[in-house]
Design a protein around this nucleic acid. Structure first.
Lengths: 211, 211, 211, 211
DNA sequence: TATGAATGAGTCTTCATTCAT
DNA sequence: GATGAATGAAGACTCATTCAT
């Protein structure tokens, strides 16, 4: 393979950029949102503060990229599951939710960055790709049950709420005396999925049983 | 009633303290976490910044008290429900969860203060009274089902995760195109409660029915 | 004379304020507009930069005060001349113009600050008191000549232009090989005053003479 | 015509230089002095900031050239008028002064650059060509009146002061409620010219008339 | 009890300039 | 001839905090 000068330069630049982003991410991990500043970032990356502005127009832009990357990473994982044709949709949903939580636990700071910290109130709200993937998973699970789109959306949001709840709590309150995290997560996800299948259906079956 | 000088002084001091706290809370409500500073607080309360330090050792301490108060407020509400003897424990749990979510929506900034912003990683974690109340509600709902304490704790945490999830999302992402918030909350809470009752039981009853 | 605590404090504060202003003025004198910054000012006054903000809300405000003071000082001088009743208005005008130029030469930096540097484009333009004084002087000089208000305003502005021209040039180009400054100023002022009296009148008298 | 390599190179270099200067001027015109920086210039000209330093040693040098060019442009215009032989010198002077003012109004930023911003206190003052032209015009107007050189110089400077006054005021204070600019300029120029002809002469003629 | 004065450390950001490539 | 990368210095400004009074 041959690489010309321009491509090499581009490569180098990209490397620097992602080096900075990585360092930024690390700072979030270590010191949280408040510990992050362009100065600390510069210090940590071994550059002068001014140099950061060669790669990012502003702190906000840098931050946006960070968020974007985090979302994209999560999305890529979810997408894979969505694409698995011929699988049991219920199992797919379950795997998707588990993946969501696991991703959050594995990348606690990305999760904070993406879902907890700062709503970019300036921009018009933009439902994110990752959420679209979740929506798709729920729809697949509900396929053939005659659920209305609104109802489907409702259940998607409910499922999201549940997994977000457990992810953010485990992430933000690592000191809390949690019972087995694994079992807890399973429990939450199972409840959520049962919620997706729908109360009415269950109630109906229960009622018909009693008779 | 007679009050000696020292007591009176104490009384006065307490009044000032709570005046400051009230103002601080108001600032959070109005301007969010970023809009809050000792300066803005001082201005709003009519004192000089220096004076605040006569009542609170530091911003952190002040903040801690604020959080404590928020928890206490939530706790008092939950407590009332716990105390209602002779009621259906299931209904009590449901009311408790609803109250939790409603409290969060009514006091979004308190909720942020209490549950989202800043993990007090420095201090040894202190399970909070409000959580104790939730625990009690779950225990009551599970009374007589032969659930082990660990299992009970697990379900408490799962319930908390669910309601925290929906509360924090609704609170932090007001711009998101939510479907009917009321129905969404109901859905989440119903799923959570069904989770408390337990999957196995349901499955069992379903199975026995089919036969 | 007795001075209570508050008054004394006020006094002190005022002293600090004017100390800062004085230093600011000095910096302008020494280093010009570009050499002026809150940092350099702080250094020169022996404070930390932050301290300046105890006395002035912003650099702009500080600057505005500086300009205001300069104008006020000039105004006070012009006012005196305007008030001199019973004098020859022509002489008053002449003295006023001279005073204007002299003031500019004596306070070159105030003059720059007041008339040359930075038009506060944000604020709606505010004709200044000092200009009002000049206007009055011209009006007095033209009293009884049946000059219309517009014409009077025109001549005021023309006179201002002339004295501003000589003042700003002498001020900004001290190195230029000026002929005798005194004679130059006299010349400019004389021309300007002859301009106020009006071309037509002169022409008329000249014409009538030729006949 | 034949051009060797070196000459061609030189030619190229010159073209680049003037391209940069042109862009710099445009920035001044559009964004004023404060909007100008080597960065903005580089961006506008499509080079990197570093490249500018291949053509100009520093920002200051670039700026100096800019000023020089402005002066030269004004000079060329004035020169034309000076050269017009056989015309009424008085009319020539008048046209020269008008041209000066008009040039300033048409090129407010050039005028600022050339006459207002930055006194080059560092360099030994260099009487400028443009001023020489003005001087010549005045001398022509005074030819045959037996005016001494010093007196002639004095009047030149006085005339300059007047036109500079009106030009800089109109240029820097566009918001001021000026009466008709045209009439104002005429008035100032007429006064200035009458000043050139000289008070004494007028007075003399007036006196002789009265007799 | 209260505060005016003060500050060191920090916030984001821009600038003119250099230099190895 | 051109530039990407880098920077030291500076820009205005805010913050939590202290301390003498």
């Amino acid at each position: 393979m041959f690489m010309n000068v321009e491509a090499s330069r581009h490569h180098h630049k990209e490397a620097l950029r992602s080096g900075i982003l990585e360092a930024a991410r690390a700072i979030f991990v270590r010191d949280g949102f408040d510990g992050f500043s362009m100065r600390t970032l510069a210090r940590s990356v071994g550059y002068s503060p001014a140099s950061l502005y060669l790669h990012f127009k502003s702190k906000d832009e840098l931050f946006d990229v960070l968020v974007e990357e985090s979302f994209a990473d999560l999305y890529r994982s979810l997408e894979k599951i969505v694409r698995e044709k011929g699988k049991d949709p219920m199992q797919q949903l379950k795997r998707g939710l588990r993946l969501y939580v696991d991703w959050g636990l594995k990348n606690p700071n990305e999760y904070q960055i993406a879902f907890v910290i700062r709503t970019p109130a300036t921009k018009p709200y933009q439902t994110h790709q990752a959420f679209e993937a979740a929506r798709t998973l729920v729809k697949l699970a509900l396929a053939g049950t005659g659920t209305t789109p609104r109802e489907s959306e409702l259940r998607t949001q409910a499922v999201w709420a549940a997994v977000h709840g457990i992810t953010s709590l485990l992430t933000q309150r690592p000191q809390f005396p949690w019972v087995s995290k694994k079992r807890l997560i399973d429990h939450v996800i199972d409840s959520a999925i049962r919620g997706v299948i729908g109360a009415r259906k269950q109630e109906r079956s229960a009622r018909s049983c009693k008779q």
